[in-house]
């Protein structure tokens, strides 16, 4: 197991309440409820593979420190719910990561292009077809990561077994379905 390599840069001069409030609004979480016990970092399955631990994300969010927007952790949270299940203060760090990644994208500070591609391609796919087409998603992500060969041993047999069909299903009522995306345009930052 590796350490979380501390990659926070910059200095603390003051608290950026503007960013702090925006994170609170987007995530629906009360940042000051967190007293930084570290239980989220302790249980987080992915934290040991990231740059900063979840409780550091929480601390930087409390400070409204912009460096958090450049972290990899906020993109690679897998939403497994371990942190919120065990948090003594009923805070959900996963929701904070989610909010931060949205702000990070807006500010052009994305650290994990592949994670961004995963969620964007995923949503694009369902927007266009109503359902996910796994093969398309995998190919698009391979394009994003440039790593074409690592999963061929898994993918080719699956493809041959017909478990990754070329043609996918499209829902009938796509017109109304698409409205669900438009209706929320304001919230889509």
């Amino acid at each position: 197991m590796r350490g979380y390599s501390m990659k926070v840069s910059g200095q603390l001069r003051s608290i950026n309440t503007h960013l702090k409030r925006e994170i609170e609004k987007l995530s629906g979480q009360k940042l000051d409820a967190c007293y930084l016990c570290g239980k989220c970092s302790a249980g987080c399955p992915v934290a040991p593979y990231q740059d900063i631990a979840p409780h550091v994300v929480m601390r930087l969010a409390q400070l409204g420190h912009k460096s958090v927007l450049e972290s990899k952790m906020i993109w690679n949270c897998v939403s497994c719910g371990t942190c919120v299940t065990r948090c003594p203060n009923n805070v959900d760090p996963a929701k904070v990561c989610e909010a931060l990644s949205r702000i990070s994208k807006r500010e052009g500070l994305v650290n994990s292009k592949v994670a961004l591609a995963l969620r964007e391609k995923f949503v694009d796919l369902i927007k266009n077809r109503g359902r996910v087409h796994e093969l398309t998603l995998v190919i698009q992500l391979k394009m994003a990561s440039g790593d074409w060969f690592s999963d061929l041993d898994v993918g080719i047999p699956m493809f041959l077994q017909g478990r990754l069909p070329i043609s996918g299903h499209r829902i009938k009522d796509l017109k109304n379905f698409k409205k669900l995306f438009e209706g929320n345009k304001e919230g889509n930052k």
């Binding site: 897998v78 939403s79 989610e98 969620r119 995923f122 949503v123 996910v132 829902i171 919230g187």
Partner: peptide, 25 residues
Amino acid sequence: PDWSCCGSSQAHKIDGDMAAAIAGR
């Protein structure tokens, strides 16, 4: 009938309200 994708955690990460709407359908 004519079910659509639930949005999974990925849609939620883009926009929580949109994710709730497509699951809600």
